Computed example of a mutant assay.
Amino acid sequence: MTNPDELLAEYLAEHVTKRHRKRAMREDLRRRIDINKGDSGNVVKEVSAYLEDKPMVRVVAVYSALPGEADLSTLVSRGGKIWVFPKVVGEDLYFFQVLNLKEDLEFGAFGILEPKEGLREYDASQIDLFLCPGLGFDVRGGRIGRGRGFYDRVLSKARAGALKVGVCFGFQLVEDVATEPHDIRMNCVIAG
């Protein structure tokens, strides 16, 4: 029979190590973002090609880019899709349809452009494809965000079959992002 103290020590060693690795990885990825400049145009082309192969995708969750993130805003002007943007409310993300970037977005939580009040809301279960930002991704679809867990919480509510696509620049790809049980994996990663 295994000693409970040994099990606890083993568990703590594994999780403390992962948390330490994640903290160090976030620092490394922030440095990479600070010293590299990605080309959003290349990422937009890759995402466009991906969308062309997915005609069944109707409702697409996109994001307002922070400095150092791939800016996908030019996609929103393309017809044929319903584009929804996240809004931070408390500890959760809610998604609202945006038709006009200049008229429908305003600065919100954390200085990020978010949908204004009064726009049509879409529940996470209504979204066909989530285009997810992150500090970094690995080749197995692991994602490391900024540490607040907003995307992991909302993606856990996505319907079965909804696509989760990580979007980043090539310098944000790493070998392993040290995923934990609560981390939601991407179906694929588009890195331009």
Rank of each mutant, 00 (worst) to 15 (best):
residue 2 T to G: 06
residue 81 K to L: 03
residue 51 L to C: 03
residue 130 F to T: 14
residue 20 H to F: 06
residue 183 D to S: 00
residue 140 R to M: 05
residue 16 V to I: 06
residue 41 G to H: 06
residue 85 F to M: 15
residue 29 L to S: 01
residue 6 E to P: 06
residue 88 V to F: 05
residue 44 V to P: 13
residue 153 R to L: 02
residue 95 F to D: 13
residue 115 P to Y: 08
residue 188 C to N: 05
residue 152 D to E: 07
residue 76 V to Q: 11
residue 40 S to K: 10
residue 41 G to F: 02
residue 51 L to S: 02
residue 186 M to C: 13
residue 179 T to A: 03
residue 118 G to C: 07
residue 173 L to F: 02
residue 186 M to Q: 11
residue 158 A to I: 03
residue 78 R to H: 15
residue 59 V to D: 10
residue 24 A to E: 15
residue 35 I to M: 05
residue 36 N to H: 14
residue 80 G to W: 06
residue 83 W to D: 12
residue 17 T to W: 14
residue 4 P to R: 05
residue 3 N to D: 14
residue 65 A to D: 15
residue 78 R to M: 07
residue 110 F to D: 09
residue 63 Y to V: 02
residue 181 P to R: 02
residue 145 G to F: 08
residue 165 V to N: 10
residue 141 G to M: 03
residue 130 F to N: 12
residue 45 K to L: 05
residue 64 S to C: 04
residue 133 P to Q: 09
residue 68 G to V: 01
residue 137 F to V: 00
residue 80 G to A: 06
residue 122 Y to C: 06
residue 168 C to P: 10
residue 118 G to W: 09
residue 74 T to P: 11
residue 101 L to I: 13
residue 24 A to V: 01
residue 143 R to Y: 10
residue 149 G to I: 03
residue 126 Q to G: 05
residue 150 F to E: 12
residue 183 D to P: 07
residue 124 A to L: 01
residue 15 H to P: 00
residue 139 V to W: 06
residue 138 D to V: 05
residue 164 K to Y: 01
residue 163 L to Q: 15
residue 125 S to N: 02
residue 184 I to H: 07
residue 97 Q to S: 14
residue 53 D to P: 05
residue 161 G to S: 04
residue 74 T to C: 09
residue 99 L to A: 13
residue 33 I to S: 09
residue 60 V to W: 11
residue 34 D to V: 01
residue 102 K to R: 08
residue 70 A to M: 04
residue 113 L to H: 04
residue 41 G to I: 02
residue 98 V to G: 11
residue 138 D to K: 04
residue 52 E to V: 08
residue 105 L to Y: 06
residue 153 R to H: 06
residue 26 R to P: 14
residue 27 E to W: 00
residue 47 V to E: 13
residue 172 Q to V: 01
residue 124 A to C: 00
residue 34 D to T: 03
residue 78 R to Y: 12
residue 26 R to H: 10
residue 94 Y to K: 15
residue 44 V to H: 12
residue 164 K to A: 02
residue 150 F to N: 12
residue 49 A to E: 15
residue 87 K to Q: 15
residue 86 P to S: 06
residue 185 R to S: 11
residue 187 N to Y: 04
residue 146 R to F: 07
residue 44 V to C: 12
residue 20 H to S: 11
residue 163 L to V: 05
residue 172 Q to P: 11
residue 9 A to P: 14
residue 151 Y to N: 09
residue 72 L to N: 00
residue 106 E to Q: 13
residue 93 L to F: 14
residue 40 S to W: 07
residue 138 D to Y: 06
residue 129 L to T: 08
residue 156 S to Y: 00
residue 75 L to F: 08
residue 171 F to W: 05
residue 177 V to C: 07
residue 91 E to R: 14
residue 89 V to C: 10
residue 21 R to Y: 01
